[in-house]
């Protein structure tokens, strides 16, 4: 956990210097290999380092939760309710005497899981729809684009709430809801470049040589959009983590006793006067996770696609 608070300190005090370097360091023609460029960028930019560090810590925390948690996140320590942070419970305990630190550590599993799965859903469905819309054009494009328009016509949280009102509140349904809401952002990213790529000579050539459309689409057209998709996925993960926290905060996501950061913060609020640590630690965990994926996204954009941003 020491590493984590260190990361947090860096984020609040030093990240400024980095954004500066990011903007000044304009992309130049690069003949070196991708790997060396990625490494050079990482060394040059403080915000990239912070992003990579925060995300690594979070993933490590999620994987090793059973090992690094000092206590069982669900265990009631009856005699130690609402204890201030101390050496035995570094983040204090909640109203049932559960260890807040262990719950925050296990909470990373939920956030990472929701982030990855919901973005995977959106990427698969949105990407496929965008590919079809761009490649076939005509009425297929019109129908798919209108579907994207309609999904885009709802504020993110509102549409997720609609989906959850139908499916019922649960963590699985949150992943589905966020996945649906994020479909158009991926669809639109794919559609545009596919539209222009399908007229490239090499795509034309492979079609003339008798390749079927799935082969043309996946082998020749898709690689054109890989870079923006990777960048968008990273940023979407941070948005998904934020949305899951909001939905769990409203009681529509993770159900008790699951230690989701949003619901911990929500239930901690009634004790805000006597036990502020119940709200502050899960809240900080959300901030650092979202910040980490945002910075990682900026860094990947810098490395993969210097033209955008």
């Amino acid at each position: 956990m020491a590493e984590k608070s260190q990361g947090q300190q860096q984020a609040s005090t030093k990240s400024g210097v980095s954004s500066n370097q990011l903007t000044e360091d304009t992309p130049q023609r690069d003949t070196r290999s991708f790997r060396s460029r990625a490494w050079r960028r990482l060394k040059a930019s403080l915000s990239a380092k912070i992003g990579v560090t925060l995300v690594s810590i979070m993933i490590l925390m999620a994987i090793t939760a059973p090992i690094v948690s000092p206590h069982d996140p669900l265990l009631f320590h009856g005699q130690y309710q609402l204890m201030e942070p101390n050496s035995y419970f570094p983040f204090g305990t909640d109203q049932y005497g559960r260890d807040v630190l262990s719950r925050v550590i296990y909470g990373s599993q939920i956030s990472i899981q929701v982030g990855l799965i919901s973005v995977a859903i959106a990427l698969t469905i949105g990407g496929t729809l965008g590919l079809f819309a761009g490649y076939f054009g005509g009425w297929i494009d019109s129908v798919i684009s209108r579907i994207f328009d309609v999904i885009f016509a709802f504020p993110v949280i509102l549409l997720a709430i609609v989906v959850l009102a139908v499916l019922g509140p649960s963590l699985t349904n949150v992943m589905i809801a966020i996945g649906i809401v994020f479909i158009p952002q991926f669809g639109r990213i794919v559609r545009g470049p596919v539209l222009s790529a399908k007229n490239n000579e090499y795509v034309e050539a492979s079609r003339v040589m008798g390749a079927h459309w799935p082969r043309v689409m996946f082998i020749h057209v898709l690689p054109n959009v890989a870079a923006p998709l990777i960048v968008q996925s990273t940023i979407a993960i941070s948005l998904a983590i934020l949305s899951e926290a909001a939905l769990s905060f409203l009681g529509l996501g993770a159900q008790p006793p699951q230690p989701a950061w949003g619901s911990m913060l929500s239930s901690g609020r009634q004790f805000i006067e006597v036990a502020s640590w119940l709200s502050i630690f899960p809240g900080l965990a959300i901030v650092l996770a979202v910040l980490g994926f945002n910075l990682l996204g900026d860094y990947l954009r810098d490395v993969l696609d210097p033209r955008i941003g």
């Binding site: 609040s12 400024g16 909001a246 709200s279 502050i280 910040l291």
Partner: peptide, 26 residues
């Protein structure tokens, strides 16, 4: 100054409104 503005915006973007609201109440 620019670096400061940029990093404060980054932090504000990553802070959920319900957490900021809770902190303000506190």
């Amino acid at each position: 100054t620019e670096a400061g503005v940029q990093s404060v915006s980054l932090l504000a973007l990553a802070t959920p409104n319900f957490f900021l609201g809770t902190l303000l109440i506190l």
